[in-house]
Simulated assay, not measured.
Amino acid sequence: MSAQTPACQLLERQQDDYTALMVVAPPVDAWLIAQSTGVISSDLSVLSEWQAAGKIAYSPFALPENAVTHGEVVLFWPKAHQLGIWWLEGLCNVLPAGTAIEIVGEHSGGVKRVPKVLAERGMICDKRDNARRCSLFATRTIALENTLQAAWQRFEALGLTLVSHPGVFGHGKVDEGTLLLLESLEKELPKTPQRILDMGCGDGIISAWLAKRGHTVTAVDVSAFAVEATRRTLEANKVDGQVLQSDVYSALESETYDFIISNPPFHQERDVSYGPSQRLIRQAPERLANRGRLIIVANAFLPYPDLLTDAFGSFEALADNRRFRVYGAGKSGR
């Protein structure tokens, strides 16, 4: 469990009665879990922490009408500004007009833009506190036109139609590392259909690219937004694939794969976090079929060579453009 975050320190010093607190898009924080009644989050790892504590946990895509009926609501402003707006407008759509909401976040994550966001929507804004390089604002919901579907963005790349959402990795563009990875896959993958796991599928570009080439694809991501984006991308390209919300391998059964492909994340909001990538690499050998291979792309400075050596005994650098590096490692060598 992580130490108390600055935003939660700011909340705690309010000395409010948070016994009926519903938190939206929060970090994992022991104090917050203990104080709150429940959580609404797109992140499966966050939902799991609240569930493990016996608390209510909802995905934004499976939110019952009575999810928030009383008590306080606190929205943690994300670093993706448009995602913050999506959450705010979503709360205005599911909560009765006049419901009190607090919005908290770190200055480095853009929370100082919240007063302007509220003013543009005709919502009140009361600045409650400012400390720990964080700010806390109070507002009330108003009746807004439901524009949540408009947040989904479609764009063309590499002969594919991609569907993305604010907060999804690479939103609205193709990441340079992903392009380098796909160039490597063109050379590395057999032409015959393979069983491939796309770990951390994002907007589904890798999955759609693979499915177009006849491979059997399973795509997973910890984010509900990414899972929905990948489903929409596969549908837009008229290709099939299994898409699951999973914290690394958590939702997968005992099936093995010929290839595991990934552009793994190393950020969790503004913090560097290697945890998911470490689990991806360390557990890959048991998830690969005989002679199966793991192929990943990463920023060149990240400490993946040691992890790959520990897990597989050896690895190859398949491509390197100085900023990004593509690694390959086989279960029984090449």
Rank of each mutant, 00 (worst) to 15 (best):
V243H: 00
C201N: 03
L63W: 04
N321V: 12
M22G: 13
P78T: 01
A53T: 11
R291M: 09
T147D: 03
D258E: 07
S45D: 01
A52R: 05
G167S: 03
A300E: 08
Q245L: 10
S45L: 11
G159R: 00
V74S: 03
Y58W: 02
M1N: 09
A151W: 12
K173A: 13
A138K: 11
G109K: 02
N321Y: 13
L288Q: 02
H171P: 05
A226G: 02
E253Y: 12
A224Q: 13
I103R: 00
K127Q: 08
A157W: 09
A131T: 02
A311F: 14
D16L: 12
T141Y: 00
C92H: 07
L182I: 10
L21T: 10
T233L: 01
D43F: 00
Q245M: 10
W31Y: 08
E286G: 12
A236P: 14
S108E: 04
A157S: 11
I33K: 08
A311L: 09
L44H: 09
Q4D: 12
I40G: 06
P190W: 04
G202Q: 06
A34K: 01
L88I: 06
I206Q: 06
C125Y: 01
A80Q: 11
A7P: 03
S277E: 15
G84N: 09
I295W: 15
K112A: 12
I33H: 03
R231I: 02
E186H: 15
I206M: 05
D126Q: 14
L21S: 12
G54R: 11
T161A: 11
A143W: 01
A20Q: 15
Y249L: 02
Q35V: 08
R279W: 09
W152A: 04
L83H: 02
D247S: 07
A62Y: 05
A219K: 05
G38L: 07
S273T: 15
V74E: 10
S36H: 07
P305F: 11
R113D: 04
V297K: 06
Q283M: 14
G214Y: 02
Y304D: 00
D203H: 08
Q242I: 15
H107R: 14
R132W: 09
T147I: 08
S135C: 05
W31C: 07
P305C: 10
E176G: 13
P96A: 15
L91Y: 10
C8S: 10
T218H: 04
A67Q: 12
R287A: 03
A57Q: 13
L294E: 01
A131W: 15
C134E: 11
R293A: 10
P166A: 00
V24Y: 12
R334C: 08
D17G: 06
A131K: 14
E316A: 15
L185Q: 05
A298G: 12
H171M: 09
A229G: 06
P115W: 03
R154M: 08
V24W: 09
I206W: 03
F301C: 01
I142D: 01
V217F: 11
F266W: 08
E228F: 01
R293T: 00
